[in-house]
């Protein structure tokens, strides 16, 4: 681990100011990948500290933003008839255990409960969670020289290597690293927006615009600028939210990343699906909302046959390797199982 300096921010504006001042005096150049910048905010540290020990990330300066959630104006969860607002500085367990979430947004609660371990959920914030980096072994182990995400232009060892856990949607010839998150899938499915604060201004973007697909520059993972912080996630209160689940498939029963997962919400009335909201985990390079699958279900009867059509639609652009080919069928079955389960929910 490279020695680093550490400072603590007390408020959001303090954090933005510290970040932008430190970045201005660092060697960072605009357009570089934010997550490799020499200045990094740190919250729970459950991902960043790991990657620093592995020498995958080498920030020289850390700005601790853990104090921010103690500010009186920051509330972990607030909701009204139109919106659910989650503070990005809240911990995963705070959100997972919130009564409103448990009652009205079961998908969100489940996507957090099924992730990591209780100890990690107590430390990790949801803002950090949606920015967590891939578990691709070639990215995390610097003794493998090839990784376009870690060292741009070096090549991708994963495509011909051990790719069992890696992505089949949104891949490129330069990277097939999976976005590892669960909670991100619920944000993608529920059409969240993200409020971002920089030194000078706040902006709000759709969640779907936050992450960038690898393309030819897999080192650039989000549209965030290095002085920016995610402040909140805003989820529109829609009729499908209550009829929603997060189904996660993995080799062991707990404490494992998803091989496949499905975040599914249905608005069913009079025996017809008025609207569907679907995101798929474990299979995409970014949180993967499947508008194709949603459209395949719109105004359709919730039955096996239509679920199968939706599953086919969801994976029609999939590209597999020899080792992760099983994810194609598994991903479809996961979605069918989730749709079946959610359609049968008593609400």
């Amino acid at each position: 681990m490279i020695p680093f300096s550490y400072s603590r921010a007390s408020t959001l504006s303090d954090a933005n100011l510290q970040l932008s001042a430190k970045i201005a005096s660092s060697s960072f150049e605009k357009g570089e990948d934010k997550v490799q910048a020499e200045v990094q905010p740190i919250a729970g540290g459950t991902n960043l500290a790991d990657l620093m020990k592995l020498n995958v990330m080498q920030p020289h300066e850390l700005v601790d933003i853990n104090q921010l959630r103690l500010q009186p104006d920051i509330k972990a969860v607030s909701s009204n008839e139109e919106n659910l607002v989650l503070s990005a500085f809240a911990t995963m367990s705070e959100i997972a255990n919130n009564e409103i979430i448990l009652r009205d947004y079961p998908m969100i609660a489940q996507s957090l409960q099924l992730a990591a371990s209780q100890q990690i959920r107590n430390m990790a914030t949801i803002g950090g969670n949606i920015l967590q980096r891939t578990r691709c072994a070639y990215f995390r182990d610097i003794s493998f020289s090839q990784c376009n995400k870690r060292s741009p232009g070096s090549g991708c060892a994963a495509i011909t290597g051990d790719s069992r856990a890696l992505a089949i949607l949104g891949t490129s010839q330069d990277c097939i690293a999976t976005h590892p998150g669960d909670f991100s899938q619920s944000m993608a499915a529920l059409e969240a927006t993200v409020t971002i604060s920089g030194k000078n201004a706040k902006r709000t973007i759709p969640f779907s615009a936050l992450h960038k697909m690898p393309g030819s520059s897999p080192n650039i993972e989000t549209i965030l600028q290095p002085d920016e912080l995610i402040v909140s996630l805003n989820i529109p209160a829609k009729p499908w939210a209550r009829r929603s689940i997060y189904l996660k498939i993995r080799d062991r029963a707990s404490y494992a990343f998803a091989l496949t997962s499905a975040a599914v919400a249905l608005d069913i009335s009079e025996g017809t699906i008025k609207n569907a909201r679907i995101a798929l985990g474990g299979v995409g390079t970014v949180p993967w909302r499947s508008i194709d699958a949603e459209q395949a279900l719109k105004n359709k009867v919730p039955n096996d046959q239509n679920f199968k059509i939706a599953a086919e639609a969801a994976f029609k652009s999939a590209k597999t390797t020899e080792k992760n080919a099983f994810k194609l069928e598994l991903g479809k079955q996961t979605l069918i199982r989730a749709l079946t389960q959610v359609a049968a929910m008593e609400i």
């Binding site: 070639y138 062991r252 029963a253």
Partner: peptide, 15 residues
């Protein structure tokens, strides 16, 4: 390749 306890899986309590 999988030289860590997240990728080299052993049973956890719930298994």
């Amino acid at each position: 390749v999988n030289k860590n306890l997240a990728d080299y899986e052993i049973p956890v309590n719930s298994d």
